[in-house]
Design a protein around this nucleic acid. Structure first.
Length: 1129
RNA sequence: GGGCUUGUAGCUCAGGUGGUUAGAGCGCUACACUGAUAAUGUAGAGGUCCGUGGUUCGAGUCCACGCAGGCCCA
């Protein structure tokens, strides 16, 4: 066959051509079809959202996914990969609102929910084309024809089915969580709403440090032991900017590693002696330095300087479990409370390092209390429902007798209301609840410090009034109930890197809270739960069929109004015609009737979009309504990969849903990838203008160099500092070298018309062939194992090293002359077969990472024009071809050559000047044999005539020993230094003795050593120019005899003629004639002497030395200028 | 503030289980080579292995405490 030769290869064009080939020949489909019946390898695609444009980091993420799917395909697995789109959620809603110029407030007013959702549906797939384009151009194989789309009815139906299963298992419940809430507007606020400009404002609040009285129990005994008086009272200090939450306090939270101090002092308001506990670092904020260790005896009430002294200190962890008295006992909790707990959110930035914890009014408080089994303080409203001590309008409930029905924030009162209150209070000025609580506690000796405090506080964007953190209803999944199972199953997952699984994910599971499923939005999967108004009866729907049945059932009753009946009938009609939509508002307009004959309406919440994506193993196949078999074949996934930021996102939701529903992991192997940063390590952003356009990059550099760079530069889980210069480097260094190597092969194979058979015949293989074959087998094993263990970086780097260092720079460079020979000899044949086999194997090994180029290279070497590298089987290493002895020999050869080059260089003797010999001291017979087997290579490479070996018998060898610390260490331990000194002092005779008897006693000591405990090296040879690299020493005989000089001249002459040929534009195959003007006797003599050699090298049919030459060309030759003439014959 | 992670040459990165001289590529300097040439070879300059303490005969490697960057969470 004819091998294509390339000049200035454009890798983007390679990708285009191969892409077209894939499309024309349906290679992707074939790669799946040809594996029909084989074991499957399942990959789950984490769905991207197509409402934004793809970035360069998506190329990275998808390259990782692609690599292992392609690899497993090569290994014979059938790898189906269904694409998918994430279509619900806030980002879509925000984008629509931006485009329409509306806010959430306008939904249902300026625009109907129907219209709004229609717009979301259109917007979310806006950039699908760009995504598909990128997918193709980067060579990512994923099924884009039949992707799963989370907004489709079938998908939603599967999600409902999952939710119903959770419901049936009792894992779905309605509860409350602490959320930002605006009493003035009567609505909860999303975190997004709180992040709008102007929401956080500086306000001046009454802040108070309260004293919580410690009970004397076993847990607190150690503190009481430190007190100097038995009668003294002991308090824990906690600070708050919301004194109105103090009646709801049920716990005090401390940091486990924070150091706390027990301080003896006086209360500044009551002047009573007190002992208080607070963080040691914060003492300076509460106590005047002048009072430190002051005189307690002379202290009088009202003294400005209050004496204080530290009695003891301890870590927060020691305080855990200490009980204290309830501070404001209006309402009692249902179970045991009022004790010290540990929380990770405690700081010593302000306050006392102790956080007053009211589970009803703080998200942290709620969480940490729940984790420690601390109850909240609740009362029952008129309908018997539990509620906190503050009602939905922001007023204390009646049970808080002193402040019953008063607004907890001054800002909620109008001026008129304030005036009424002022009169009630009988004061000059209205005092807020916070202020009066402070006064009350001051008089009770329970306030240690009260002051105004400026801080930013969030406000409602609609009413401008302060927000409260308030318990609001939500639907939850009881993930805490399956925590142990989640952890146990997680331990069976192979995480790359491991730390993400054990650390980030493992810790997250350890500290799990129930999954808040509710979202008060419009565009998303509706919660399929219908409820009676009082919540006594409810139903969770698990399919469209159930929904329709329930609706039909409702129509039988006469509970529904005429309008409700009409809506129900309309819905049924739509389902029957296949026009239905399971989104809002349609499902909201469906009414059911409970068993007891009450109206049931849908809970208006949508579910967290993360549930959508976590449901994909089931919902992508519309399981269990369709595709049962496909589902079972592809569950759980063998492999998934996403960014590490998905740990608590997709990774968790996949894992949680699978665990709860199927009692199984969702994925067996997961690669969590790092971020793609700009070249300076900054996050890429369109705003900063440092974002890299993936399309430009692929177009300019090609997909393969881009992918190769990303994979080999950093491990997938490390952040990648993306630098375009790096792609250039990879392109020139790796792809350039590989292409050159291929071109070299193609050039000569075409000249000879040789087509490799694909059979390696070891009987005609040279040492060099056997060596590269051995190296290649080792490479196959290494690459196979790296891919198998999800280490693409190792695989890529190994391939790169093989191609650049071994194949190109050693095998081809040393073997070049073999290809120049005239006819196809067995030797040449072996060279062709070996090189072609190496290239083809490299193409296979690299194809998962560089799918286009790999295929291109493979196809260039393959006759069958329909064949693709991606349809082949992964190469199997031929263990029998691995020859470690030979690899050691070649390593010696490389090092010896390097040493000789180095000596030549320092003595300015060019490689073209042949030299007579090198001398190599030999310490063992084995080394001699190893070098001998590659002697010819060395001689050719460094242009010397002979290698002489020097052993002990030569008598000129001078040796040196170095201690082998690894061997000596365990034996001598502390005596190491003395032993090492003794070894370094060994004489030649001592070394000889050690070598012969394998034993040596270091003089004047009892240290006996053996050969294995030292390293014996040779010293430089006296009288020769030598160089040394660890255990190898080489000496070079630089005597240039007249014969050698002549040969040097001949070689130089060859070189000049070759240059002339090239400059004259002759073809490699052209035969020439040479005429040389007789200028210098020595040169002429040399040329004459080596006429045959020269003629053969430059393919000259004639070579004459003439005394006259009119139209010759001048050649620089050492200090001379020669004149020669060459012509094609 | 918490969890995880990274820190080695100007840049990008290697450096099983501790072993005394810490490597590679790119870049830089000089020289060489030139029928694979957007290459290649040789030599050179370039290091507080983030810091401090500890364990050890011996620490880039193990331990503790910090510092700086990143991600997630609060």
């Amino acid at each position: 066959m004819n091998f294509k030769e390339y000049k200035n290869l454009d890798y983007a064009q390679v990708a285009d051509e191969i892409l077209k080939f894939w499309q024309d020949e349906n290679v992707f489909q074939k790669s799946i079809e040809t594996r029909e019946g084989n074991p499957t390898f399942t990959f789950y695609e984490g769905p991207p959202s197509a409402n934004g444009t793809p970035g360069i980091h998506h190329v990275m993420a998808r390259a990782i996914k692609d690599i292992f799917c392609r690899y497993q395909t090569l290994k014979g697995k059938q790898v189906k990969r269904k694409g998918g789109w994430d279509t619900h959620g806030l980002p879509v809603e925000l984008q629509v609102e931006k485009e329409l110029g509306i806010t959430k407030e306008d939904i249902g007013k300026k625009i109907t929910v129907e219209e709004y959702n229609q717009k979301c549906r259109e917007t979310v797939m806006k950039f699908t084309d760009q995504w598909n384009d990128l997918t193709e151009k980067m060579g990512y194989w994923v099924d884009l024809e039949n992707p799963y789309i989370t907004y489709e009815n079938n998908y939603i139906e599967s999600v409902w089915h999952l939710l119903q299963q959770l419901y049936k298992k009792g894992l779905l419940y309605k509860g409350y969580t602490i959320q930002p809430y605006s009493p003035a507007a009567g609505t909860g606020l999303s975190s997004h709403e709180l992040n709008q400009p102007g929401c956080y404002r500086e306000v001046k609040d009454t802040s108070m440090t309260a004293q919580f009285k410690v009970k004397h129990t076993g847990k607190s005994a150690f503190l009481f032991d430190d007190l100097q008086s038995d009668a003294a009272e002991l308090f824990i200090l906690a600070w708050t900017t919301t004194p109105w939450t103090l009646p709801s306090n049920t716990a005090l939270t401390v940091g486990k590693n924070i150091e706390y101090a027990l301080v003896k002092t006086y209360n500044p308001y009551t002047f009573l002696p007190v002992n208080v506990i607070l963080a040691k670092d914060l003492i300076g904020k509460y106590f005047n330095e002048k009072g430190k260790d002051g005189d307690f005896a002379t202290y009088k009430d009202g003294d400005k300087i209050i004496p204080w002294t530290i009695l003891s200190t301890c870590k927060g962890s020691h305080l855990e479990g200490i009980e204290y008295e309830q501070l404001m006992p209006y309402v009692q909790p249902e179970s045991a409370a009022f004790r010290v707990i540990i929380g990770d959110f405690v700081t010593t930035e302000d306050g006392t390092g102790v956080v007053h914890t009211a589970p009803t009014f703080g998200a942290d408080d709620f969480r940490v209390a729940a984790q420690n089994g601390i109850p909240a303080i609740l009362v029952k409203d008129e309908s018997g429902k539990e509620m906190p001590l503050v009602d939905r309008r922001g007023r204390f409930v009646a049970e808080v007798t002193d402040f019953a029905l008063e607004y907890v924030k001054e800002a909620y009162l109008t001026d008129e209301e304030k005036e009424v209150e002022r009169e009630k209070q009988n004061r000059d000025k209205y005092l807020s609840v916070d202020e009066r609580i402070s006064i009350k506690l001051k008089t009770e000796n329970r306030a240690f410090n009260v002051q105004k405090f400026d801080h930013p506080y969030p406000h409602c964007w609609r009413t401008d009034k302060p927000v409260l953190y308030y318990p609001l209803d939500s639907w939850f999944i009881r993930t805490t109930a399956v925590k142990d199972k989640l952890i146990a199953l997680n331990n069976t997952i192979n995480w790359k890197p491991e730390s993400t699984g054990t650390g980030r994910f493992g810790n997250w599971l350890e500290n799990l809270v129930d999954w808040n499923l509710s979202r008060s939005r419009y565009w998303g999967t509706p919660l399929p739960i219908w409820r009676t108004e009082n919540g006594d009866e409810e139903i969770c729907i698990g399919s469209v069929e159930e929904l329709v049945n329930a609706v039909k059932h409702a129509l039988k009753d006469d509970v529904l109004s005429a309008e409700q009946r009409t809506k129900n009938e309309a819905f049924i009609a739509k389902v029957e015609s296949g026009n239905h939509d399971l989104h809002r508002p349609y499902v909201d307009e469906v009414y059911m009737v409970s068993a007891s004959g009450q109206l049931m309406t849908r809970e208006l919440d949508l579910i967290d979009v993360w549930f959508d994506s976590g449901a994909m193993p089931f919902a992508q196949w519309h399981y269990p309504f369709e595709n049962q078999e496909v589902f079972h074949q592809s569950y759980p996934a063998d492999f998934i990969s996403e960014g590490v930021d998905q740990t608590r996102g997709w990774f968790f939701t996949l894992h949680a849903i699978s665990t709860m529903v199927a009692d199984s992991v969702a994925f067996k192997n997961v690669v969590s990838t790092g971020l793609v940063l700009d070249k300076n390590g900054n996050k890429m952003s369109k705003r900063l203008g440092n974002a890299i356009d993936p399309f430009d990059t692929l177009k300019k550099y090609g997909a393969d160099p881009t992918r190769w760079y990303m994979i080999t530069n950093a491990q997938p889980w490390d952040n990648l500092k993306f630098d375009l210069a790096g792609i250039t480097e990879v392109r020139n260094k790796f792809f350039g070298t590989l292409t050159n190597t291929y071109n070299f092969f193609a050039l000569y194979a075409n000249l000879d018309g040789y087509t490799p058979t694909g059979n390696i015949d070891l009987s005609i293989a040279t040492e060099l062939d056997k060596w590269i074959l051995s190296k290649l087998q080792t490479l196959i094993k290494e690459v196979d194992e790296s891919y198998e263990t999800y280490e693409p970086t190792k695989a890529g780097r190994a391939i790169q090293d093989f191609v650049c260092d071994h194949l190109s720079n050693w095998y081809v460079r040393l073997g070049r002359r073999r290809f120049w020979q005239g006819e196809v000899t067995p030797d040449k044949q072996s060279a062709y077969e070996t090189l072609a086999y190496c290239l083809k194997t490299v193409a296979q090994l690299m194809s998962p990472v560089a799918p286009f180029y790999g295929d291109w290279l493979f196809r260039n070497l393959t006759e069958d024009t329909n064949q693709s590298v991606h349809l082949t089987d992964f190469p199997k290493a031929q263990e029998a071809w691995i020859n470690l002895d030979l690899e050691t020999s070649m390593d010696l050869a490389q090092r010896i050559c390097s040493l000789v080059h180095s000596i030549r260089k320092t003595n300015r003797i060019k490689v073209r000047q042949p030299l007579s010999k090198i001398l190599i001291p030999i310490l063992s017979e084995k080394t001699r044999e190893q070098i001998r087997s590659v002697e010819d290579l060395i001689k050719t490479e460094v242009n010397i005539k002979a290698i002489e070996y020097l052993d002990d018998a030569s008598g000129v060898l001078s040796k040196k020993v170095k201690p082998n610390f690894k061997a000596l260490g365990p034996k001598f331990g502390k005596e190491m230094k003395a032993v090492a000194d003794g070894i370094l002092a060994m004489t030649n005779e001592a070394i000889a003795q050690l070598e012969q008897t394998d034993s040596y006693l270091i003089p004047d000591t009892s240290y006996q050593i053996t050969k294995a405990e030292v390293e014996i090296l040779t010293e430089d040879l006296p009288g020769y120019l030598s160089a040394k690299d660890n255990d190898i020493t080489v000496a070079l005989d630089i005597t240039i005899t007249p014969e050698l000089k002549q040969e040097g001249i001949a070689r130089d002459f060859v070189n000049r003629i070759q240059n002339l040929r090239k400059d004259s534009g002759f073809e490699v195959t052209d035969k020439i004639s040479i005429q040389l003007l007789d200028t210098d006797a020595e040169v002429s003599e040399g040329v004459r002497e080596f006429k045959d050699f020269i003629s053969q090298e430059v393919q000259a049919l004639s070579l004459e030395i003439v005394s006259e030459l009119s139209d010759g060309q001048e050649i620089e030759f050492e200090e001379l200028t020669l004149v020669a003439k060459i012509a094609v014959v």
